[in-house]
Simulated assay, not measured.
Amino acid sequence: MTDYTPIQQQAAPPAAPPRNGLGTAGFVLGLVGLVIAPIPLAGVAAWPLAVLGLILSAVGIARVRSGKATNKGLAIAGVVLSLLALVVSVLWLVVIGKVINDVNEQATQHHTIVYEVSGNAKTADIDYSTFDRNTILINTEAGAAVPWTRTVEATGFLAGAQFTATAGPDGGSVTCKVVVDGKEAKTATAAGPGAVAGCTGF
């Protein structure tokens, strides 16, 4: 009688564990990029983070489709967050570019400024600004006859410019008026000896 030895089947090797690292890393980078993208200056770092997050998340999705990873939802979220971070970064660049352009235009813009003092006062002490490149100079004319006018030229910002008219000792009213590039910028009136009409901050 022949003895038969049963053949034992070998168990299949255990399946390789899912490798979810790339999709997870893409999600984290996209999230960090989206958080810092709206922050001025720091938002510059959102660009490389968002791009890298988008790449890693896309690779993570590909690994899910090939059965090598299981975190499909996290990888898709990484793609979405990375794209949002890129959009926010682009919007910030547009805004910053416009601000820089506006500042440059204002810094080089030429202005014609007309100072006027009127009223029934006979005289007034007048302080007014003139401009020398980036420097604002204060000029004073004491006891100037009213009415009075001066025209000055300026390039750049007008912030910090001053213009006041102080009625003389004989009293009366004084009115100061500033016209910038043909448009009235500011006016004020005061009456009485030593009264001050201020048109500063135009």
Results as ranks from 00 to 15, higher is better:
residue 87 V to G: 11
residue 26 G to R: 00
residue 5 T to C: 10
residue 19 R to E: 07
residue 20 N to H: 11
residue 81 L to A: 07
residue 11 A to H: 13
residue 68 K to W: 10
residue 168 G to V: 00
residue 100 I to P: 01
residue 178 V to G: 02
residue 131 F to A: 01
residue 146 V to A: 07
residue 162 Q to G: 04
residue 157 F to K: 09
residue 70 T to H: 12
residue 176 C to H: 04
residue 56 L to E: 00
residue 42 A to L: 15
residue 199 C to K: 03
residue 148 W to H: 11
residue 180 V to Q: 08
residue 41 L to F: 13
residue 194 G to P: 07
residue 7 I to G: 08
residue 47 W to F: 15
residue 52 L to Q: 01
residue 100 I to M: 12
residue 23 G to R: 03
residue 157 F to M: 10
residue 9 Q to V: 04
residue 82 S to Q: 06
residue 99 V to G: 14
residue 147 P to V: 07
residue 78 G to P: 05
residue 20 N to M: 07
residue 111 H to A: 09
residue 56 L to Q: 00
residue 123 T to N: 08
residue 135 T to L: 15
residue 92 W to Y: 12
residue 4 Y to D: 08
residue 100 I to G: 13
residue 130 T to W: 08
residue 93 L to F: 11
residue 96 I to A: 15
residue 93 L to E: 08
residue 34 L to Y: 04
residue 8 Q to I: 09
residue 35 V to E: 01
residue 194 G to Q: 05
residue 1 M to C: 10
residue 174 V to C: 04
residue 93 L to I: 09
residue 167 A to N: 05
residue 133 R to K: 15
residue 195 A to W: 01
residue 98 K to L: 10
residue 106 Q to N: 14
residue 173 S to I: 03
residue 132 D to Y: 12
residue 174 V to Q: 03
residue 181 D to H: 08
residue 114 V to R: 05
residue 49 L to N: 00
residue 48 P to T: 13
residue 191 A to M: 06
residue 148 W to G: 12
residue 140 T to G: 06
residue 132 D to A: 11
residue 47 W to V: 14
residue 147 P to E: 08
residue 58 A to Y: 05
residue 9 Q to Y: 11
residue 63 R to I: 01
residue 60 G to S: 06
residue 44 V to I: 13
residue 25 A to N: 09
residue 170 D to F: 05
residue 99 V to E: 14
residue 9 Q to M: 15
residue 105 E to S: 12
residue 35 V to D: 00
residue 23 G to P: 06
residue 70 T to M: 12
residue 23 G to M: 04
residue 37 A to I: 05
residue 135 T to F: 14
residue 137 L to C: 05
residue 20 N to T: 00
residue 127 D to Y: 02
residue 155 T to S: 14
residue 32 V to W: 02
residue 31 L to M: 14
residue 134 N to S: 14
residue 117 V to Y: 02
residue 44 V to R: 02
residue 3 D to T: 13
residue 194 G to M: 05
residue 157 F to N: 10
residue 187 T to Y: 02
residue 154 A to Q: 06
residue 106 Q to D: 11
residue 121 A to L: 04
residue 78 G to C: 06
residue 121 A to Y: 01
residue 195 A to R: 00
residue 46 A to R: 01
residue 106 Q to Y: 09
residue 11 A to K: 15
residue 167 A to D: 04
residue 5 T to Q: 14
residue 107 A to V: 04
residue 116 E to S: 14
